[in-house]
């Protein structure tokens, strides 16, 4: 269990350490701090969005050990010892990730709020299944809601990122 610091009012804070986008982080968190709030408010990783905050919409998707999870349903204290990727972790200094490039090329954005989660779900899919079918792509992003109804171009962008021919 993480180290616990108790202040004079009896409030406990837990020392957690985890890796995010390749960087080691340590922080003091309260038991009720949600991971999505911690990374946005403390680490300025605001690419991860808060949407429904109930695990339905996927705006807060981050990769935990390479797998997409909802950061709104993860206690920061339970992030201890784990490794995460957020949308900020995909691009290198001057170069976007291929999935990001294809999202731009195929116009897979409207308002863009769902895009970080969509792109991370797509990354996780392509890492385990480099040549997915359209059905598999749709399944992989089924936990990411787009309320601008832009799924068609999102699916095309992900298929294109896998190197498959897609009608533009």
């Amino acid at each position: 269990m993480a180290n616990v610091l108790t202040d004079k009012e009896g409030k406990k804070r837990y020392l957690v350490s985890f890796t995010i986008n390749g960087d080691e982080h340590q922080g003091l968190v309260k038991a009720n701090t949600l991971f999505v709030n911690f990374i946005r408010d403390e680490l300025d990783l605001t690419g991860t969005k808060r949407g429904c905050e109930l695990g339905d919409c996927g705006s807060c998707t981050v990769l935990m050990e390479g797998k997409p999870v909802n950061a709104c349903l993860l206690l920061a204290v339970e992030a201890d010892g784990h490794s995460f990727t957020t949308i900020e972790g995909l691009a290198t200094t001057n170069k976007l990730d291929l999935v990001q490039e294809k999202f731009i090329e195929y116009g897979a954005f409207q308002c863009g709020y769902c895009a970080p989660g969509m792109i991370l779900s797509a990354k996780a899919l392509l890492n385990s299944n480099p040549k997915p079918t359209e059905h598999e792509v749709r399944e992989a992003i089924s936990g990411n809601l787009c309320r601008c109804t832009g799924y068609v171009n999102v699916v095309k962008a992900i298929l294109a990122a896998s190197g498959q021919e897609v009608e533009h």
Partner: peptide, 13 residues
Amino acid sequence: MYLPDFEYFAPDS
């Protein structure tokens, strides 16, 4: 959306 305060334990057994 924030959670109310609670005590947290993560036992090892």
